[in-house]
Write a protein that binds this DNA or RNA. Structure first.
Lengths: 212, 212
DNA sequence: TTAGACTTCAAACGAGCGTTTTAAATGCGC
DNA sequence: GCGCATTTAAAACGCTCGTTTGAAGTCTAA
């Protein structure tokens, strides 16, 4: 199975799929649209991926494998530092995602795909993501828990859930937000990271109230 | 045009549509699924609403008219109080949405529909929502701006965007979160509102940083 | 009770869907 | 250059989609 020769077709399908899934959703983007945009024969999807569902999974795997590896590496580096802060852990989670949407072509599209997956409560997709990347979230949750010992577990999970949702939505909108003229992409992303980290840290650190 | 006789069919279509749009998305839920769930003839959708797109809009209008009226009323009440706080304004935004998902049947489904609309960047839908309900967001933005005079406009909009995303996402998941046994629905919602308000207030109030 | 507006219904429309099939083209070690 | 596995190609499969049609049914007011 000579990978080099299949590479181009598979790659083009994945890129077109990512873009169209971001624009029209998983159900809304058809394989005919995808293959037309990729300049590839319609049957190529089922030849290379087996089905539309598996193509969707591959769209996620391609980006998430690297994204989560970077997140874990950054987390490990952070946990190694003796006096690491909440902001450091948040940065380990957020910055790789921001870099993804900056570095690679198609990154901005992918974070929108990710937001869609968040909004969908599709059973198959949730299981796939949980099976493949659930351990990453668990490691981050443990790191947060260690830094916020006074928060009850239930309260912490509440807040992490809100933070994850907020970050996902915010990053999905980055491709749309128009930045100040003259501001470089890098500057913009750095400011964005600062905003997100500060915002999330404030929400997590706020002392737990007992009752009103 | 005798409204009373059409009422039942239209109502049943709207309720089935809301539920199925929440579950499978706008493209993913077909009119055949909707009409079957509503126990109504397939052609009834096009007879009563004209098209699938207009049905989608009507699903939004039915809930948002009341939701936004309540939000504006709560905001007006809050702004009338002399010493009102950031938390009060946030409560005016959040509590009506939480009550919607508590009071009415189908409410939890609708907030998930709302989250989907957020994730979609559908031009037609965005225009419809902005045309019909954009003024509500503007009034809230003004109220926030008055309470956070030290924040630059750009910074404020950043944060409001994140808050709106976080809230939308969090409320969409309320139907899924399992609450402690013995905890009443009302208690759960009140606690949820406290969490969201405290979280959002902390993120908004955090002093603006100049640069790292 | 009959006229007429409104609503429901079964059936069909053309179009597009994901997938499969079968054959032609391509790349590559021998 | 031949033989073979891999990839591309065109066409068709059965199915579901949103929408339209025209007739049947239902209700109300005169």
């Amino acid at each position: 199975m000579p990978e080099s020769s299949t590479f181009s077709t598979k790659q083009r399908i994945l890129e077109a799929a990512e873009d169209l899934f971001a624009k029209h959703g998983f159900a809304g983007a058809s394989l005919r649209q995808v293959t037309a945009a990729a300049n590839v024969n319609l049957a190529a999807v089922n030849y290379h991926f087996g089905s539309k569902d598996r193509l969707i999974e591959e769209v996620f795997r391609r980006r998430l494998d690297e994204l989560n590896a970077r997140r874990l590496a950054a987390l490990k580096r952070t946990l190694g530092k003796p006096g690491h802060s909440l902001e450091d852990v948040l940065a380990a989670f957020i910055k790789p995602a921001l870099e993804l949407s900056l570095d690679r072509s198609g990154g901005p599209a992918f974070v929108r795909v990710l937001a869609r997956a968040y909004a969908e409560h599709n059973e198959r997709l949730r299981k796939f993501l949980s099976d493949n990347y659930g351990h990453v979230l668990k490691e981050f949750a443990a790191a947060f828990a260690a830094l916020l010992p006074k928060l009850e577990k239930e309260e912490l999970y509440w807040r992490l859930d809100i933070v994850a949702g907020a970050l996902t939505y915010a990053m999905a909108d980055f491709g749309v937000i128009k930045r100040r003229s003259g501001q470089s992409e890098r500057d913009f992303r750095d400011r964005a990271a600062q905003h997100l980290i500060r915002f999330a840290a404030a929400g997590l650190r706020e002392p737990q109230g007992t009752r009103d």
